[in-house]
């Protein structure tokens, strides 16, 4: 029975005290109620997830954990080209990076009084509260946005890279 008809029948019984005589039968709804959309979870360990991304695309964990002392520069160079390409693509895809200041390296810059010391690190002949005038030695890095992909709900968030097993 259609829910509205059922409701009407219920009220009729409630207020009139007698069962309905002949209720028209409504066709059952043809479509099943839509299944709830699947949930997409964010990792509870976002820092590990970032390591996982850098490892997957650029093999960064393997590289940093390897003892490279015995290899020739050319050997390291050949591999690093690929590692660099992979890690860079992770940054490009997931982080929006910009410099902290708009001036280029070597350009002069005016730093107002009351500046944010987490954004600008003064060096050298610093006295008083400012304003200061100086030269940019490094323009800094600033993350505008970090967009990490979702993870399967069934995945262990502490895994940086799964063990790979070749089945023969």
């Amino acid at each position: 029975m259609h829910p509205i008809l059922a409701l009407r029948a219920f009220f009729r019984v409630l207020f009139q005290g007698e069962p309905p005589v002949s209720m028209p039968v409504a066709p059952a709804p043809a479509v099943a109620p839509p299944a709830p959309a699947p949930a997409f979870a964010h990792s509870t360990e976002p820092a590990i997830q970032l390591l996982a991304l850098l490892q997957k695309e650029g093999r960064l964990m393997d590289f940093l954990r390897e003892d490279i002392g015995s290899y020739k520069d050319a050997e390291i160079g050949a591999a690093v080209r690929d590692i660099h390409r992979g890690c860079r693509s992770v940054l490009e895809r997931h982080a929006t990076l910009r410099a902290v200041v708009t001036q280029k390296e070597g350009q002069s810059i005016d730093v107002p009084a009351g500046f944010d010391p987490s954004q600008i690190a003064l060096q050298g002949n610093v006295s008083g509260a400012g304003p200061f005038r100086g030269t940019v030695a490094h323009p800094g890095w600033y993350v505008e946005a970090l967009k990490l992909p979702t993870v399967p709900p069934g995945a262990d968030p502490k895994v940086v890279a799964p063990a790979q097993v070749e089945v023969r």
Partner: peptide
């Protein structure tokens, strides 16, 4: 793959 790996925004 872990459970839920292949889900789409519109259906499991």
């Amino acid at each position: 793959v872990p459970a839920g790996s292949l889900n789409l925004p519109w259906r499991a």
